[in-house]
Amino acid sequence: MSIQSITHVEYHCADADATAAGFCADYGFTSIPPEPGHLATTESQGARTLLLRQGGIRFLLRSATDPAHPVARYVDRHGEGVAALALGCTDPQAALERAERHGARVLDRAGGLVAGFGDTSLRFVAEQPAADHDEPAGRLLDALDHAAICVPAGELAPAVRFCEAALGMHRIFGEYIEVGEQAMDSSVVQSVSGEVTFTLIEPDTSRRPGQIDTFLADHEGAGVQHLAFRTGDIATAVRTVRGRGVEFLTTPGTYYDALAERLGGTAIPVDTLRELDILVDQDHGGQLFQLFARSTHPRRTFFLELIERQGAGTFGTANIKALYEAVERQRAAASV
């Protein structure tokens, strides 16, 4: 029953066609016909569904054509966002039964859907080889690296236990981050396959409210804060999508001034990292490079990340703090 991958992301939006056009124009996704038996082939009446692909990433975009449809209710409450993560399993039925034994609430038994984090559900599906679709030359993105999920204060430890017991994942990393008078706690859980990774985050409500508190208030509960797309060449990916109009969060020059002392050498030249605002960190396996797109979501409750891993399997603590600070600068600027 083990979980092998995230086969697709179910993203609910106000206009699937417009959202698809943005993903295709900005990040190079292509619209593909759904594979046999895919959820997109059995869409319910009252919703528009499109399937996008790039590398191993699949986005199932859904928008309501009927205002009474569940997609419309989701968007009305949360704004556009990730409504479900589909987990490819060797035995979906056994995976659902295990999750149910460990307290997961079944939402749609036939569809393999259980409650996950707030209104972000988990769907157990069969792990199948990807269909062969032609992609345009110069593909930028390879896979979905991880999903970052915000949960209310006090729910981080139960969420980790749920992932371990119900999903068979294990905790690989954790960090408590303080930025000024704000703080948050995080844990990273991962499937045995190594292909499904959730970064779980909760605010420290004993400190001054910050961006995680703001997310939970504006999103009206737990949910996916960002998705990270893995690339084999982050410098090229950033230059390409920036040229298409995508804006990224900036990094102070002092961050790069301290890199030599903190890390020694970097696999990508520091001048390139500085030019493109790319963050770099390392763990026992190697280095990782990250950059976070500026949120264009009306509620600022969802954004995207680009990440390149050169051996690193976890997350560096300096990058988590740098991300927090970058998002906080954007939040502060938006409130002026």
Rank of each mutant, 00 (worst) to 15 (best):
I3K: 01
I6Y: 03
H8R: 11
E10T: 13
Y11D: 03
Y11N: 03
H12Q: 12
C13F: 09
A14W: 03
D17A: 15
A20Q: 10
G22E: 13
F23C: 07
C24Y: 01
Y27Q: 02
T30S: 14
I32R: 11
P34A: 05
L39P: 00
T42I: 06
T42Y: 04
E43V: 10
R48N: 13
L50A: 02
L51T: 13
S63Q: 09
A68C: 09
H69M: 07
P70W: 05
V71S: 07
G81H: 08
G81N: 08
V82R: 09
G88K: 11
G88T: 11
A94S: 15
A95R: 08
E97N: 14
E100K: 15
H102I: 01
G103F: 04
A104L: 05
V106M: 08
G111P: 06
F117D: 05
G118P: 11
R123V: 11
P129V: 06
H133N: 04
H133D: 10
A137L: 08
L140A: 05
L140V: 02
A143H: 12
R161S: 11
L167F: 01
M169R: 00
M169I: 00
F173Q: 09
A183W: 00
S187W: 01
V188W: 01
G194N: 03
F198W: 08
L200V: 02
P203S: 04
D204A: 04
I212R: 02
A217W: 06
H219W: 05
V224H: 04
H226K: 12
F229T: 09
R230L: 14
R230D: 13
T231A: 12
I234Y: 11
A235T: 15
V238H: 15
V238Q: 14
R239Y: 05
R239C: 04
R244N: 15
E247Y: 02
G253I: 03
Y256K: 04
I268G: 02
T272P: 01
T272G: 01
L273G: 05
L273R: 05
L273M: 04
V280N: 04
D281G: 09
D283T: 06
H297R: 08
H297V: 05
R299W: 06
R300S: 13
F302S: 08
E305N: 07
I307C: 07
I307L: 13
Q310M: 13
Q310A: 07
L323I: 15
V327P: 02
E328D: 15
Q330H: 14
